[in-house]
Design a protein around this nucleic acid. Structure first.
Lengths: 215, 215
DNA sequence: GTCTATATTCCGATAGAC
DNA sequence: GTCTATCGGAATATAGAC
């Protein structure tokens, strides 16, 4: 309590501004001048607090990583503490709810983070090569294990494929990366409401997961 | 026949090199020096042939646009020339086959193009704002119309949503943008074979499309 | 911790010789 | 058409005063 409310710490202001700009323009197209100007801090502050632009990017990611992993794992844990084996639908609800919930809670910057994820798939930054599996390896393994129990008619490989498909659809949907937005002059769907997106996603993914094995 | 075989035209060499580098690193992270060096041409050649880096990017896209649109439209046309209404499965096969076929025919650079598409969703370059709807508007409209006939239990909005989901899953799958690759140290599935990808995709997408409407 | 000033590098683009 | 040389600007990063 030694410090009175002094608006926001400089490092936090940098993280907030950088997160928005990285999501909006990508890593390369975002300069440190844009970031520091948007944050209202001095240009040298980034190097002082984060060492480099790469270090800042990693810090932006790390800040959201733990809450996201904890939330999705907790949801799955609640599901698995019951007597019956969770269905694919229930597992998907737990997984999607994590993102949708983060998306609603703007104080956590959740939607921004999900969009950043969507970006990172197509443009993986080398600095995350080590930290991402450490952060999310357990999440991925445990969800895939749950899906395998729910979908005994599928081989392990095919469960992995379907997890790949569902995460692609999900992260792109929450991120608003829409082929319709690119291909049509006036796309009919362009919603940003995480609740609506989750409602549209669930039947599609549930049915896709439960589909018979590939021939 | 006035020209003897002189390896490859300079402009084509530039297009080929630029396509690979744009896909690999993105537009901003790819410099004209990287491109001209990879193509083995002079640094000034890009401006001579394409006017600017933006012009080159547009040319890279335009080169693949027409064959892709023609192929997918032709497939759908064949389907609709029959007596019966095409099923969601058949429409999806026609759509996916277009990408899978381009992916197989390396002389067309198809897989590269699909990966470039996947990138463009998350990082739309302003220079494509006008040309993309012009090129692909008809493809999108006609496929969505076909899906609407095949899925009369869904509202127009929901058909658009599901088209969004299926294209996300498809383009990411063909592009290899895999959450597993990012989250796990040794992902189980990382295949690049378009035929295998299409075989894994189809049951998932078919079932997802035919799923009941969202509650 | 915060700031100014600057070092260094690389970028896209072009002028002009051949 | 192809090349060299270079311009003007913006990038990251840092040295050093306060």
């Amino acid at each position: 309590m030694a410090e009175t409310a002094k608006a926001l710490e400089t490092s936090t202001r940098i993280l907030d501004a950088a997160e928005v700009l990285f999501v909006e323009h990508g890593f390369d197209a975002t300069s440190m001048r844009m970031i520091t100007q948007s944050a209202g801090v001095n240009i040298a502050a980034v190097n002082y607090y984060f060492g480099s632009k790469d270090g800042l990017f990693k810090a932006v990611f790390e800040r959201r990583a733990e809450p996201f992993a904890r939330l999705t794992l907790q949801r799955l844990g609640e599901l698995e503490s019951r007597d019956t084996i969770p269905t694919a639908r229930e597992i998907t609800e737990a997984f999607v709810a994590g993102s949708a919930e983060l998306g609603r809670d703007t104080s956590l910057g959740g939607l921004l983070f999900v969009r950043l994820m969507g970006r990172t798939f197509v443009e993986p930054h080398p600095i995350l090569k080590e930290s991402m599996p450490r952060r999310y390896g357990e999440v991925t393994r445990r969800y895939i294990a749950a899906y395998r129990r729910a979908l005994p008619h599928l081989s392990e490989q095919e469960v992995h494929w379907r997890f790949h498909f569902l995460t692609s659809a999900m992260f792109n949907a929450f991120a608003g990366n829409n082929v319709l937005r690119l291909f049509m002059d006036q796309p009919l769907v362009n919603a940003r409401d995480p609740i609506l997106i989750a409602r549209m996603l669930l039947p599609f993914i549930e049915a896709g997961l439960n589909a018979p094995a590939a021939t």
